[in-house]
Design a protein around this nucleic acid. Structure first.
Lengths: 150, 150
DNA sequence: CGAAACTTGACAACACGTTGTCAATATGAC
DNA sequence: GTCATATTGACAACGTGTTGTCAAGTTTCG
């Protein structure tokens, strides 16, 4: 393997590990209020304004089907409800219930506390810089893979 | 939400997206030789030396069960074979077959080509620096989450 | 208006990971 | 040597995502 191959593989492995770590953090924050990370994310997507399932999927960058599954579970648990959509008869709007709003609200303090500790461990400036670099890596990756498809 | 909460969430979302991007790249490289990303990774783990399933899992940082599933598929496809383990009667060694070695070998050129393009897009120095920062973020995250469990 | 194209939700099959449990096998302390 | 403990592979249930297909609803355009 070339040096660059080793570097690429190393980056990928590290990103896979980071993915697992952030997921674990999210699960840990969401569990106390009876949510999973995925439930939290879907619920969070409709807090600002109700959206149809396909709209949530677009916002989250995953498929409609994955969101549909979560939304149905949240609805069964009384966290969200399907409202009629004046603009589209089939695409009902997913809206949080009182209980759903309250659940997300209760995650706030622990979420803030963890964010504080991470930022203090890294330093606020370095944390912001890392976020910027992550975004840059993602954009570069997008550009490089687009060459293949183009 | 505090600024730090926004930053944490932003990092997480970006890492989730990066995870998907690197996964897509790996799938794209592995598919032409009839492998998935997960198959490639397991196969790669035993190229240097045969290992039992639990050993592969430790090296990859995932559970034995996940590796077992992949190893059984690879064995069914003739990419690996189970060899008797002199040191442990139950824990057979997973060893690549000729076909398995050849499959991985054939990924090499495309792997190298992609690594070249990514490193040239980022610049070799910046790429190496990013890898370092990813590792630092992972280590910091590990330390911060360890506080919770400790 | 009406036909083609697109979007949406429902359903099914699958890939990849997890946790939990069990029996078989090693390992270590006494 | 023996017994408690840890490791290992097998099996099952589940969570989260994917692709593919279909019919119902919406939009576009001639």
């Amino acid at each position: 393997m070339t040096d660059r191959q080793v570097l690429l593989s190393g980056m990928a492995v590290t990103v896979f590990r980071l993915n697992g770590q952030f997921l674990d953090v999210a699960e840990g924050l969401a569990r106390p209020v009876g949510l999973t990370a995925a439930h939290w994310q879907v619920l969070g997507a409709v807090l600002k304004e109700p959206l149809p399932v396909a709209g949530i999927a677009r916002e989250m960058g995953i498929t409609r089907q994955a969101v549909q599954r979560i939304a149905d579970i949240l609805a069964a648990n009384g966290m969200v409800e399907y409202l009629p959509n004046p603009a589209h008869r089939r695409a009902k709007l997913v809206a949080p219930t009182e209980e759903g709003v309250e659940a997300v609200r209760r995650i706030g303090p622990a979420h803030a506390a963890f964010a504080d500790r991470l930022c203090e461990a890294l330093g606020d400036d370095r944390a912001a810089e890392m976020h910027r670099l992550l975004g840059e890596l993602s954009a570069t990756l997008e550009a490089v893979t687009a060459e293949d498809r183009g």
